[in-house]
């Protein structure tokens, strides 16, 4: 007996898993180097979503203490968002580096097809 309530209740995790797998699939299967890297970005995005959704609290507000605050106000957990800011910076710099490498590869080899590149390289 499948517990639909359990499955639906964790819809955010399903989205994360699906995105993660789409990204992994693209990385492995796609031959174009840019598409490969886009797959990686999708994978990263899924992880960011995972972090943010785990930090979320139902009915919580952003954790900024306004007007002296109060014990009755529920804040969402700020730490995962902060962590993910760092992770996004990392991902952006990786992407920048990868794209510049891809430009160089295209200049040198005239193709971005990974199979063709393997032939050219002789690997």
């Amino acid at each position: 007996m499948i517990n639909f309530e359990f499955l639906l209740g964790h819809y955010n995790y399903w989205a994360v898993i699906v995105l993660f797998l789409i990204g992994l699939y693209a990385m492995i299967v796609k031959k174009n180097l840019i598409k490969k890297f886009m797959g990686l970005n999708i994978m990263d995005t899924s992880i960011f979503l995972f972090y943010i959704s785990m930090g979320d609290v139902e009915g919580g507000v952003s954790p900024i203490i306004a007007h002296g605050g109060g014990s009755e106000v529920i804040y969402v957990n700020p730490l995962p968002s902060v962590l993910i800011l760092t992770a996004i910076v990392v991902a952006v710099s990786t992407t920048a580096l990868a794209l510049s490498l891809i430009i160089k590869i295209y200049e040198e080899y005239g193709t971005l097809d990974s199979e063709r590149l393997v032939e050219l390289m002789g690997w």
Binding site: M27, D44, I47, V90, A98
Partner: peptide
């Protein structure tokens, strides 16, 4: 590039 791709997967 090869190193970067595998490294990025490891990061994730």
């Amino acid at each position: 590039y090869k190193y970067l791709l595998l490294g990025a997967i490891a990061t994730s």
